[in-house]
């Protein structure tokens, strides 16, 4: 079965020791939770999870070409 490729973007202190943006190959059907855990995050660290600019639940499956953006709980105003 062919793999899919997604773009992962990290923000705020999630970037420390990791990266800003990277491509990742996944098995088809992989969801946000698998990617997050695969990067070494705890689920409780997640503030905002967006897929293609929209808030996504952890069990949302990822598709070819998706952009997954991960933010810790931060804010401003």
């Amino acid at each position: 079965m062919a793999t899919i490729t997604i773009t992962i973007k990290l923000f705020a202190h999630f970037r420390n020791g990791r990266f800003k943006e990277a491509a990742q190959r996944l098995d088809p059907g992989a969801d946000c939770r698998q990617v997050i855990l695969g990067l070494g995050f705890r689920l409780s660290e997640m503030g905002i999870v967006m897929v293609n600019g929209q808030h996504a639940p952890l069990d949302q499956p990822l598709n070819e070409g998706d952009t997954l953006a991960l933010f810790p709980l931060v804010g401003g105003g």
Binding site: K9, F11, A12, H13, G47, I48, M50, G53, Q54, A69, F71, P72, L73, V74, G75, G76, G77
Partner: peptide, 23 residues
Amino acid sequence: PVSGQGLPTYGTNVLVNILHEAG
């Protein structure tokens, strides 16, 4: 986490990337 860590570290300007990402 917002008032205790996020705001002190990045200030309110952490929002640029969040709002960019959200369109």
